[in-house]
Design a protein around this nucleic acid. Sequence first.
DNA 1: CTGAAAGCGCTTACAG
DNA 2: CTGAAAGCGCTTACAG
Lengths: 339, 339
Amino acid sequence: VKDAHVTLHDVAARAGVSVATASRALSGIGVRQTNRTRVTSAAEELGYVPNEAARALRNVRTMTVGVVFNKLTGPLGTELLDALVSGLDQHGYSLFVATAQGSKERYDELVHRFLERRVDALLCVNAIGDGAALARFMAAGVPVAALFSKSDGYEKLPLIAPSISDAVADCIDRLKALGHSHLGILRPNPRFRRVEVFRRWASESGIRLRDYEYDEEIFDAGGFVARLASDTGRPTVIVAAEAEAIAIFEAAQQVSLGVPKLLSIVAIRDHELRMPMTKLPISVLHLSPSKVGVTAVEILVRVLSQEDSTSALSPATVQMGSWIERASTGPAPLTNSAD
Amino acid sequence: VKDAHVTLHDVAARAGVSVATASRALSGIGVRQTNRTRVTSAAEELGYVPNEAARALRNVRTMTVGVVFNKLTGPLGTELLDALVSGLDQHGYSLFVATAQGSKERYDELVHRFLERRVDALLCVNAIGDGAALARFMAAGVPVAALFSKSDGYEKLPLIAPSISDAVADCIDRLKALGHSHLGILRPNPRFRRVEVFRRWASESGIRLRDYEYDEEIFDAGGFVARLASDTGRPTVIVAAEAEAIAIFEAAQQVSLGVPKLLSIVAIRDHELRMPMTKLPISVLHLSPSKVGVTAVEILVRVLSQEDSTSALSPATVQMGSWIERASTGPAPLTNSAD
DNA sequence: CTGAAAGCGCTTACAG
DNA sequence: CTGAAAGCGCTTACAG
C-alpha cells in the first residue's frame, strides 16, 4: 500500500514521451510546446508530486538545513526558530530541528545525525560538546555556524552573536541627558554578561555604576527597595530583568519611593510575550532574538547560493536590542545627586 | 569541493570486499568475523558516514516526520514542539518544522512541501486551509494527524486534542468541598471554550456559574473588583487566565476584599514560563501542552512500526491540565452564600 | 557467507 | 528538441 506515489515514469508514459523530456518539461527547460502541455496535464491528472529525496540524491543538495538547540524551551529559542524556519522556507529550504535538552553528548550526536541527513548547512544554537563531527562537515564543505553562543569543541565556528550594545548606548545617553550619574544594576549571581555592556557605556559617559547581586529564585523586592530607600547615596536609576523591575516598581510605590520622581527604573525584556500583569509604564530594553535568526538566514543563503562553495560563513554581531522609553524613567532627583 | 563524502564503495574497496558485504557488515547482518572487522575499521579510518538520503530512496521510509504549525511563537507551541522533537528523535526520526504564520495558503503549501519531502508521517497543529494535499497523503498511505485543533479542509483528520476536564473536575470538587456554590468565570469575548468545561462540571456539582466577559487588551482589574465588591450576590470564586487572576488578586487586596477570606481566586496557567512578577500564592489550573506531544509521538510510532500500514491514526484526548491548590482558594464566606 | 546486479526516482551530459 | 543511458549511494533478492 505504501508508496502509491506517482512517479515521473508514470507521467512520461501517459504523456507519451521519455522521462527525460518529462523531467525537462516540468522544470521549464526547452521542450516543444505540445510536449510541455501534454506533460504538465499528465502530471496534473495523475497528481504527480516530485520526490524531493530522489532529487536530492541526484543533485548534491538536499535543500535542507539542520538546527540543533541546546534547549528549545524558553522564549528566546522560539523566536529564533520562528525567524529561521520562515526565512529558510522562503528560499526553498526545509528545516530539521533537534534539541539536546542540555546534554553535551546528545548535542554531539544530533550534529552527527544531521551529517547523515546530508543537510546543506548546519546551525548550532548555544553549542556544547566536543564537536567531533565538525571536521566531517568541513571536509564535505558544508557551512556550519554557531548561534548565540558557542563553547568547547564548537569554539572555532563562526559565531552569529547577539548584542545589545547599541540599545544600551541609547539608554545610557538618555539617562545622562536626564541628569543621572549613578546607576544600579541588579543581576543574578554568576554569569550575566549584559552587565558588562552597561559598565562599558556607563564609564564612557562618566556614570557611576553599582552592582546588586540577588537570588533569582527568591528575589525580595520589598527588602531591596527598603534598603535602597534608606541609602542616601543610592543610585538614581535601577536596571533589572523585567520581572524584577516590575516587582521593584510596585514595592517602591508602597514605601512612597516615587517612580520616577525619586527612582528611575529600566527593565530588560527577554521576550515578546504579552506582559499583561502590569499596566506599569516601564522603560524597557527590548530583546529581539528573531533578528539573529533573520541575519543567520541571510548569511546562510548568501553562502549557499554561491557556486564556489567557499563554505566560509562570516561571523556577525547582531544588534537585537531596542530602547523604549516610558514613564518609569525621568529626570534625576536633586536630593541624592551629591552623595 | 562539495560532497567530499566517503561512500560505501570507498569503504568496500579499502576493506577488500564488495559493497554488498560492506553494507551487510555495517548493518550487522551475518558476515564472516574477519570481514566484519575489516569493514568496520575501514569505515572508521575513512570517516564513513552513511547517506541517509540514499538509504531513504532505496528503502521506502525517510525516517522523517513533518510538523506544520499555524503559529509557532507562543509558549504552547514551544512546549509541544519540544516534546515532539525529543520523542521522535528517540525513535530515530528527524523532524521537519514549518510555520504558516497564520496564513491558510501558506499552511496548505507547507503541507504539500512535506509531501514532496516524503515524510513518513505528518502532524498538523491548529490546521487551517483547504487541505487539498491531504488526499495525496492518504493515497500514499502516510499517516496524518491534527494536533490541538483542526478546521476547514483538515476537519476529517484524526485529532489529538487537549483537554482539561479532569483537572477542572478536581478543581470543582475541591471548591464544592470548601463550601462554594457560586463561581464566576472571566473570559475574553468570543471563543474561550474552556468555559464550557467548567460549565459542565459546575452544573453536575450543583454549582451556579456566572460569565464575565472582558476585553483582553485593556482589562481593568480595579473596576472589575469594585463592581464585584458592591455586588452582594457575587460569586465566591473567580476563575481567570493567570495574568488577569493576578491583577484581580492585587486589586482585591487594595479594596480590602480579602483573598481568600471574602473571595477565592483560581488562575489558568497557559505556559511553563517562570512567573516571577508575583509571590501571590494563587491556586492554579496548569496546562502542559507537552503531554499532547508525548501522546502524539506514542500514537505515531505505534502506527509507523506496524508492518501493515493501516495508516489508521487513532484520535485521542489528552488530559493536559493539573489542579494545584494554593492559598488563594479557601472556605466560602458565609455572608453572601444566600443571595 | 559473498558478489554481481537490479532498482529506489530523479537529472543531465551525450548523441542523435 | 528528444531519447537512451549513466549515475547519485544505498539495500536486497538472486545465484553461487
